[in-house]
Amino acid sequence: MLLSCNHVTGTKKGFALNDVTFSLEAGFIMVLAGENGAGKTTLFKTILDKKKQYTGEIYLDGKEIFIDHEKTLSRIGFVSEENIFFKQYSALENANLLSVFYENWDGMEFLNSMKKMGLSAHKIVGKMSRGELMKFQMAFAMAYKPKLYLLDEATAGMDPVFRKDFYKILRSIIAEEKASIIMTSHIQDELEFQADYSGIMKEGRLVQFKENIV
């Protein structure tokens, strides 16, 4: 199993996850759906947060994520509107600055990925549209070849033509890198046809998790 969540319950005050359990093998795409506020982004932040704020266990590639959380973060690619980059710098300047934190960083891969996404590396991050920002973050993540991609509404804001290419990029990532992808989405097509597994969250619980048989 690449990712395993066992009875993960948030301990933060206010809204929290409630007994979330699922596993995802390497090389598969899982789509997580649910109403706004259901806990999809909270699940991602629970994995990424530098402070452990849950009970239960989360394993990435067989290792508990908090044993060496910095190493865990270097193996996860996070694409979200809530991700933080230097808005006053270009995509390339952001990449040069932040790549120091990633051992596996490949600058050429970043530039090639930006080209595949149809985005200029010199575009200022603060001036990107939502769709462009998601593409940049995807290219950034691909440059350090994470094992797990967490895509938070990444395709919302992408034009339908590019969205098809984007799914091809995702499929090639999981095929070549044996990575796994969890994406949150409200797009029906993604739920039914693009994912290998789908889950539905409601009020912090994973109420449904199944394999999509197409």
């Binding site: 990424l48 530098k50 910095e70 190493k71 865990t72 973060l73 933080i84 932040l98 934190f101 990633y102």
Partner: peptide, 11 residues
């Protein structure tokens, strides 16, 4: 610290 919140670096 907020800017590097999701980066693989300890506070």
């Amino acid at each position: 610290y907020k800017m590097l919140k999701w980066m693989p670096v300890r506070k």
